[in-house]
Amino acid sequence: MGNYFTVNMEENFKRNQDFITEMNTIKIERQVQIRKQMRDRLVALEIAKARELFFWYGSFYLLSLAGAIVGYRSLPYKRKLISLLPMVPLTFVVAYQADLAYGNKIHRILVEAEHIMQFEQELLALPLGIPTAASIDLGRMQKDESKKLHPLLPQT
């Protein structure tokens, strides 16, 4: 009877460990999925912002271009190409924004980010390294100590 009880406890312990491992795996997978969905939403929001800004830049550019052309043509005795010169930098600004909003600039940025992650890891290093549980606890204790010493000061 005692031997059966010990074997049964070991089986239950093993099943509990397997269950906990499976629950932890599901929890981690859910966290990863939540983070991915939040990132996707933030990226979509940034693209939408870029497209909205492009409409404003594009409108400003077209109005400026129309004004510059009218100014160039309406003064026949002063027809100088220098009056169209401000359109050059504006063309670059609008082209950049159009590429960001509707072109493949985001794809090129992702490719460059992947290149940095693969071949330039040293650029990704955090100052003072990855936070540890001890450094987080130390910071928490310092904040608590500061709160005790200066209770009226706003906490950061």
Rank of each mutant, 00 (worst) to 15 (best):
K27E: 09
Y96W: 12
S146D: 11
E120D: 06
A68I: 04
M87V: 07
L42P: 00
L149D: 04
E10M: 04
N16S: 09
P76R: 09
R108C: 05
D40P: 02
V88L: 05
D137T: 04
A66P: 00
K143N: 10
I82Y: 14
K148E: 15
V88F: 04
P154S: 14
V111R: 12
L110K: 12
L84A: 13
L124P: 00
V111F: 03
I136P: 00
S59G: 15
G103E: 07
A68W: 00
L110S: 11
Q33K: 11
V111E: 11
R15G: 01
L65R: 02
K148R: 15
P76G: 09
F5N: 13
Y96L: 10
E122A: 09
F19S: 05
K78C: 15
E112D: 12
S64D: 14
Q118C: 04
E46N: 12
V111N: 02
L45V: 10
F54Q: 07
Y96N: 02
A95W: 06
L65F: 11
N24R: 12
F54P: 01
L123Q: 03
G71W: 03
T21W: 05
L90I: 11
M23L: 10
D99G: 11
Y4C: 07
F13E: 02
A44H: 05
R30Y: 13
K80Y: 15
T156F: 13
K49R: 15
Q97V: 02
V43K: 01
Q142V: 04
L110R: 10
R15H: 12
F119G: 00
Y4F: 13
R51W: 01
I47R: 07
Q118L: 08
R108P: 00
T21I: 06
Y77E: 13
L110G: 06
P89Y: 07
Y96A: 08
K27R: 15
K49D: 11
D18R: 08
H150L: 07
L63I: 12
S74R: 05
L110I: 05
P154R: 10
L90V: 06
V7N: 02
I28F: 07
M141Y: 07
P131E: 00
G67H: 02
F55Y: 09
A48D: 12
Q31R: 13
I26M: 08
T132F: 02
A98S: 14
Y77C: 09
M23D: 01
I116S: 00
D18S: 09
V32W: 03
D40A: 11
R79M: 15
I69C: 07
A44P: 00
A134D: 13
L149I: 03
